[in-house]
Design a protein around this nucleic acid. Structure first.
Lengths: 205, 205
DNA sequence: ATTATCTATAGATCTATAGATAATGC
DNA sequence: ATTATCTATAGATCTATAGATAATGC
């Protein structure tokens, strides 16, 4: 057997990732994942036994990605708050450029299969429980100093996430209208700036 | 046969609506729709022949709702622009309160089943082609008069839609964190104001 | 006569595994 | 000896329809 760049096990996982992300758990079929991976259908079950199993592998990896980005976003605490918020928006946005199908996938599986929410909640709960109160305190301090306008940390985060995520969620649909004539990365760059602008104007006095 | 409030045909459609909205085309099963509707499985096929057919009935109704709201949102042209934008944000938000599962459903089916995009595009295309240029002109006029800051109509609409829609898309997930202790309608009311605030500050000089 | 309903079942599709065979690593 | 691979097929689930029967509207 020659040396392949990837083992079949990995190839199957990659193919599963693509199919699950695009079609969801129910829309994806183990037969077509196997076909896409270029292996016999039996191989898929040999390595992962069940469809459920294979899905969970994909799902957990994706959930981890999300919880990591939340933590990473609020690092760099030694920087003025407004600047840090700006940087957070940008790095969060950049992360989404690299993981465009991720939000839609998670949202969808979490809603259509509520039994899977626990996995998500467990990963994300602590992060939320720590990040929000800490941010709230910082915001309140700045408000007292008269530097920014009052806002709840939860609202600020939801503002940022809404603006950043939504473009990617609808991107495959709006492209078909071609209103964004021209190049995709210009479009994204423009959106990133627009989002920063919106949030900065919301916060600045 | 006694007089029922609804015919079986309608009951089936309603049950289908619920199941398709929640689980998508592939996740929904005609057997469980029939069960939910309290009819034998054969009745579903008697009235709608195929699953595809039944799905399309639901899908088209939902697409119409969306295209209607876009048109309605930009009525009331005899009103100062900023005020009109504010009203548009609010009425769009109110519409979403009444149709919370709608955006996620559409986004998802449109992405996982690209063959259905045409139905959507046809309904929405004209509306977009008329609304955006008209709005752009109005915005440009106000910019020249020195009343607002420059913005592309497309960006403004995407800003509004992002902020308004996203809360509902993730709502079933964030409720489980219970950060929004207290009542749901207060939470929504607060979000609506936050969104108006953001957009107004973006536009005002 | 037409419309509505049920039971039973065909036929398709999909997940999963059994069992045989080939390749690989000590 | 263990791991990887294939063919073949069982078994489950799901969509769809045939065919019989009951209800309804002229």
């Amino acid at each position: 057997m020659e040396i392949k760049d990837k083992s079949k096990e990995e190839i199957i996982l990659k193919a599963a990732e693509v199919e699950f992300m695009l079609k969801g758990f129910h829309g994806a079929k183990t037969t077509s994942i196997a076909k896409e991976a270029g292996v016999t259908h039996a191989m898929l079950h040999y390595y992962y036994r069940t469809k459920e199993n294979l899905f969970n592998k994909v799902f957990e990896t994706k959930v981890s990605l999300i919880s990591d980005i939340i933590v990473r976003s609020f690092a760099n605490s030694h920087m003025p708050l407004l600047e840090r918020v700006k940087l957070t928006i940008e790095s969060h946005f950049n992360f989404l450029v690299e993981n465009q199908e991720l939000p839609r996938f998670l949202i969808n599986e979490l809603i259509s299969q509520p039994e899977r929410r626990k996995i998500f909640e467990n990963k994300i709960e602590d992060v939320i429980g720590i990040v929000i109160p800490a941010l709230q305190k910082e915001l309140d301090d700045e408000v007292l100093k008269g530097n920014i306008r009052a806002i709840k940390a939860f609202d600020l985060i939801l503002d940022i996430v809404s603006l950043n995520v939504f473009v990617f969620v609808v991107f495959p649909i709006i492209t078909s209208f071609d209103s964004l004539s021209g190049n995709t990365s210009d479009f994204f760059e423009n959106r990133k700036q627009e989002n920063v602008e919106l949030i900065m104007r919301r916060l600045k006095k």
